[in-house]
Simulated scan of single mutants.
Amino acid sequence: MPEIARFYGIVIKLFFGDHPPPHFHAVYGEYVGLFNIDTLEMIEGDLPNRAKDLIIEWAAINKEEMKKMWEKQEFHKLPPLE
């Protein structure tokens, strides 16, 4: 699963052969979350609220680019949250 971003100990990954809806994975230590790219809702996972908030903030900035990557199945690194 390609890593597309890393910030504050959070790793964001995107896997193209995965099931719909378009989504990304976030890993923070032993915690994981699965987020819908369109709604930014956490579909499943156990992330702490602070990490979840940072991920949603980052995803709102990069939403359109992630949608393009999912559709074209071409990935590249995205900038971290600053």
Score class of each variant (00 low, 15 high):
G33M: 06
I4H: 03
W70A: 06
E64M: 09
P22C: 08
M69E: 09
M1F: 06
K52P: 00
F7Q: 12
I12M: 12
E82D: 02
M66N: 08
V32G: 06
I10F: 03
E57W: 02
R6N: 07
I43E: 12
I10H: 01
T39N: 03
F15H: 12
P21E: 10
G17P: 04
L40Y: 02
G9N: 06
P79G: 08
A5K: 07
K63E: 01
I37P: 11
F16L: 08
L14Q: 13
Q73A: 12
D53V: 09
D18Y: 07
A59C: 01
E71H: 11
L54S: 06
E64H: 14
H23E: 12
L34W: 13
I10P: 06
Y8W: 10
I61E: 05
P2Q: 11
L81C: 02
E57T: 14
F75E: 13
R6P: 00
E30S: 07
N62L: 03
E64F: 07
K52I: 01
I12V: 15
E44A: 14
I55V: 15
H23Y: 02
K67P: 03
Y28R: 05
E82V: 01
A60W: 02
I4A: 01
L47Q: 00
W70L: 04
D38R: 14
D46F: 05
E65V: 01
P2R: 00
L40A: 14
F75I: 12
E74L: 14
K68Q: 11
Q73F: 04
K77R: 13
V27Q: 15
A59W: 03
I61H: 10
H25F: 11
K67R: 04
M42D: 00
I12S: 08
P79E: 11
I61S: 04
Y31N: 15
L47K: 01
E82I: 11
H19A: 09
K72H: 09
I43Q: 14
G33Q: 11
L47M: 09
P80C: 05
E65F: 05
Y28H: 15
I43L: 15
K63Y: 10
E57A: 12
I55P: 05
H23D: 11
F24Y: 15
L54M: 13
R6W: 04
E74K: 13
P21D: 12
V27C: 03
F16G: 15
H19Y: 09
G17K: 04
K67Q: 08
A26I: 02
K63G: 04
P20K: 07
H19F: 10
P80Q: 00
F35A: 03
E65P: 07
L34M: 11
N36P: 04
W58M: 07
G45D: 00
F15W: 10
G45W: 03
I4G: 08
P80I: 07
G17M: 02
Q73P: 10
E41V: 11
E64W: 09
W70K: 02
P79F: 13
K13L: 11
P48H: 14
I37D: 07
K63D: 00
M69Q: 15
P2C: 09
V32N: 04
I55W: 01
D53Y: 05
E57Q: 15
V32Y: 13
E30H: 07
L54V: 00
F15K: 14
A26D: 08
I12N: 08
M1A: 07
I43C: 03
K77I: 07
Y31R: 13
R50K: 10
A26Y: 08
I37G: 04
G29K: 05
I4V: 14
G9S: 00
H23W: 13
R50P: 01
G33V: 13
